[in-house]
Amino acid sequence: MARGIIIEDLHKQYGVGDTAVEALKGVNMQVGPGEVVGLVGPSGSGKSTLLKCLGAVIEPTSGRMILGGETIYDQKWNIKDLGALRRDSIGFVFQAPYLIPFLDVIDNVALILMLAGHSNDASRKRAMDLLEALDVAHRAKAMPSQLSGGEQQRVAIARALVSHPPVILADEPTAPLDSERALAVMKILNEMAKEYETAIIVVTHDEKIMPTFKRIYHIRDGKTIEEAGEGRAI
C-alpha cells in the first residue's frame, strides 16, 4: 500500500487532568490507493477530530499515521512543514465548497499548484484538464458566486485533486446536494480515485450515498469498526 492511508492506534486527548477528554481511543484504519471509504458516526463520535489529525491541522496524542507511503506521525510529527504536507499530499473537500470568492474557477483550482511554485500557465493547464474531466471547463472563467451548488462542489473536487495528492479527505461533500447530484459527486470521486490512485475518506451522514462505498468505517466513542459489504459499489 504505497499511496494509501494507514492509521495505527491513533489517540487524541483534549485537555489534561480531570477535564481531559479522549476523542480518539486507538483508531485503526487502512485505505488503499484508488479506494473510497466512508466514515460514519454520530455527532461527537470523533469524526472531525480524526479528519483534523489526518489533515495535519491538529496533533494526535499518540499513534502512527502513514500517508502516501510516508510516515507523517509516529508519536510525534515527522514532518516540519505541515503546510507543505497539506498542499502537496492531502486534498480537502468540504461540506460547503469554500471556494475563494475573489478568484475565478480556474485559478481556484490552480492556486495550490501556484503556491507549490509551478508557473501560472502550467498550473492553469493542469487545472483546465481536470475541469474538463469534471465537466465544468466551460465555467473556467466564471466566479464562484456564478456557479450552481453542484458546479461549485465539482470545482472543489478539482481543487482537491489538482496536485494529485495520495490522499483526499472529504467532509460531508454531498450534504447540500440532492440525491442525483450527490451520487454524481460520489461517482466522480470514485473515478478520480481510480484514475489517480488516490485514497479517499468520505465523512458522511448521507444515507443515499452509503451504497457507493465498498467499505465503511463506523466511529463510535473514539473507536472505529469496519463494515465491509458485498455489492457496495456504484
Binding site: 491541522v57 498542499r87 502537496d88 468540504f94 495550490i112 507549490a116
Partner: peptide
C-alpha cells in the same frame, strides 16, 4: 476568515 482558513489549510504560507 473562512477563506483564510481554507488558504492556510491548503498550504498557503503565513507570509503569503
Amino acid at each position: 476568515i473562512r477563506e483564510i482558513a481554507v488558504l492556510k489549510l491548503i498550504g498557503t504560507k503565513n507570509r503569503t
